[in-house]
């Protein structure tokens, strides 16, 4: 297991290097520079600014300088927000995005697993069709539609929940978490259903039934561990995707997270911020993939024996 984890971590290094290189080349080849503005920028200002941010150096020098900085854990100063470093902006935005992601994940898992299990227990019945149809709607409904609908209903008509902000008023985290989590809940539900149906038809489940175990125990103790394997494999990348993709939800609910900074950085050609956040998110995705691989292996003994080789 340890060797497997180490191997995956070593594989991550060239991946990260490729991410940095490609992103670096892409941002520098994008038309429009970080300092172009609606009002004409006088040439003396442009020269001064480019010198200050080392954009006057040849590209390879900028690249090697940047790599060195990243190795030291320094993503450099933000071009758009003078006086702020990229590290500082990530440190401010990420905890919020992560918190939102965790709540959304809880929503996704709790709704998704329950719906998936309900559907799997009685496949092709009304108990299957209703949650699965809802799941399909959940998958199809983008958060920029679901968010405003929830806001309209719970925030404006019923006036139960705050419609925006983060940590400003009690309950202001509920709607964003539901908005971000619902799409994933739908995936989780479908994956759970698939996994559970397969597991529930296995011999050991039949044995358990034959032993006369209560159905609740069969499903939740014996079935769920195997049935959730596809879900676990999905959750790692899903969580990373949630963090990287929370931009829309952060905008709708005015949440001061990193997602908003990430997308704005691209529009602003804030080179260091784009690179910093991309590398950061890439790192997260890699880490979550590794974690979910390890978890999946822990849950599925068959995978373990594969990596360990046949027992002698």
């Amino acid at each position: 297991m340890l060797r497997f984890a180490l191997g995956r971590i070593l594989q991550a290094i060239p991946v990260l290097l490729a991410v940095i290189t490609i992103t670096f080349l892409l941002v520098h080849s994008a038309p429009g520079g970080p300092f172009s503005a609606d009002k004409a920028v006088p040439p003396e200002v442009l020269i001064a600014l480019e010198a200050q941010y080392k954009l006057d150096l040849p590209l390879w020098q900028q690249y090697s300088g940047y790599l060195g900085d990243v190795l030291r854990g320094d993503f450099g100063p933000s071009f758009k927000y003078p006086g702020r470093t990229v590290n500082e902006l990530i440190a401010t935005g990420f905890p919020v995005t992560a918190e939102l992601g965790i709540y959304a994940m809880l929503v996704a898992i709790s709704i998704g697993v329950i719906a998936g299990v309900l559907a799997a227990v009685r496949p092709n019945s009304i108990q299957d069709y209703v949650p699965m149809s809802l799941a399909m709607i959940g998958i199809c409904m983008p958060s920029f539609l679901l968010g405003p609908l929830l806001v309209l209903f719970f925030g404006i008509y019923l006036e139960w929940l705050p419609i925006s902000g983060w940590n400003n008023m009690p309950g202001d985290k509920i709607l964003p978490a539901i908005t971000l989590g619902t799409g994933y809940a739908a995936y989780v539900a479908r994956l759970t259903r698939g996994g559970m149906i397969e597991v529930l038809s296995q011999d050991y489940i039949r044995t358990a039934r034959a032993k006369g175990l209560p159905e609740f125990l069969i499903v939740f103790k014996h079935g769920l561990r195997g049935g959730l394997i596809p879900v676990v494999a999905f959750l790692g990348p899903a969580f990373a995707g949630m963090l990287g993709g929370s931009f829309v939800v952060e905008t709708i609910f005015d949440i001061p997270g990193l997602g908003r900074f990430y997308v704005q950085a691209a529009f602003n050609r804030d080179y260091t911020m784009i690179l910093g956040t991309t590398v950061f998110f890439a790192g997260l995705i890699i880490i979550f993939n590794i974690i979910s691989d390890i978890l999946a292996m822990w849950m599925n003994p068959r995978l373990q024996s594969k990596t360990h080789g046949p027992e002698k």
């Binding site: 705050p162 925006s164 609910f253």
Partner: peptide, 11 residues
């Protein structure tokens, strides 16, 4: 987001 802002005003 102008729509968010308007909603906040309404609330």
């Amino acid at each position: 987001n102008g729509t968010t802002e308007e909603r906040m005003f309404r609330a």
